[in-house]
Computed example of a mutant assay.
Amino acid sequence: MENSTSTSTKQLLETYYHGFARKEGWESVIADDFTFIGGNMTNPEPAVGKAAYIEVIKRFSRTFQSMRVKEMIIDGSNACVTGNYDFIFPNGAAINGDVAEIWKAKDGKLISLRIFFDTLTFDKNIPK
């Protein structure tokens, strides 16, 4: 039996990914003081704040055409999601890849995300 925290975390993530796949309507579940780590393995400094994360996603949304949740594991306010993305890069390369996404929720909002993915593929396919 799921506890209410797991259910709440699951509902937040379902709302997020439903909107994220459509590239709209995901922002409502993000906390104002959201912390995002990922996208640059050589610079582990987080992007802090909802506005900063929205800017990250605006850039990222230009490369992915579609996404699906492959697996979601929830433990209270913590979750791990494997997302599968279809990318089309500015150079025309079309690639399918998985991203590991580690989430934390608190007080009815998603408060942090840390992602892990193949950064070398992005470096090779996105002009500097």
Rank of each mutant, 00 (worst) to 15 (best):
A31L: 03
H18T: 04
G39W: 03
I54R: 08
E27C: 05
G39C: 03
H18A: 04
I30S: 08
V29P: 00
T15D: 12
Y53A: 02
N43F: 11
G19V: 06
T35M: 09
S28D: 15
E27S: 04
A51F: 02
E24I: 09
F20N: 10
E27P: 03
I54F: 00
N43G: 11
P46A: 06
T42L: 08
E27M: 01
I30G: 11
A21K: 13
I57N: 07
K58V: 09
D33H: 09
S28I: 06
E14R: 08
G19K: 04
S28T: 04
V29T: 09
F20R: 10
M41F: 14
S28C: 12
A21D: 12
D33G: 07
A47W: 06
D32S: 13
T42R: 11
F34V: 02
E45P: 01
M41I: 12
K50Y: 08
G25R: 01
T15R: 12
Q11P: 11
G38C: 04
R22D: 15
E27K: 04
Y17K: 06
H18L: 05
P46Y: 02
I30P: 03
M41W: 13
D33P: 05
G25A: 03
T35A: 15
I54C: 10
Y17G: 08
F20P: 06
Y17N: 13
I37S: 06
G49Q: 02
E14L: 10
I57D: 05
E24H: 14
K23R: 14
K50C: 11
G49P: 01
A47L: 07
Y16T: 06
G19M: 07
G19P: 02
E14C: 14
K23W: 05
T42F: 12
A52Q: 00
N43D: 15
L12F: 10
V48I: 14
D32R: 10
N43A: 09
Y17V: 07
N43L: 01
Y17C: 02
L12Y: 06
L12E: 10
K23C: 11
P44L: 02
D33E: 12
T35F: 14
F34T: 01
G38H: 02
S28R: 01
E55G: 10
E24K: 15
G49A: 05
K23F: 02
W26M: 07
A52G: 04
E24G: 06
P46G: 00
G19E: 11
A51V: 01
Q11L: 15
P44V: 00
G38Y: 01
I54D: 07
R22K: 13
